[in-house]
Amino acid sequence: MKVFALIAVIITGAALIYSTFEMPDWGDAGSPANTHVSPRYIESSIKETATPNIVTSVLADYRGYDTLGETTVIFTAGMVCILLLRSKKDD
């Protein structure tokens, strides 16, 4: 069983390493991830939101729906922990 797991892991890792030959180099400023939307965030953050920390302005302003969903996920996790585990003392 552990041999099959090891074989599956090695095959998956080899496929992933093969795929990295097509990836942009580490720290490449011209890679697609660094040129698609982030220059707009960097340029217009202080003009549009008056917030120098771009991470905060993207987190709370440009992607507000996303953060609302994440907060709801955290809230649901807390409620699930209470529902699963909490029991009264004299039960």
């Binding site: 490449d28 400023a29 660094n34 202080i46």
Partner: peptide, 12 residues
């Protein structure tokens, strides 16, 4: 997210 060549943290 990193950029080589003197890029700093995203705080303007």
């Amino acid at each position: 997210a990193s950029k080589k060549g003197g890029a700093t943290i995203p705080i303007l």
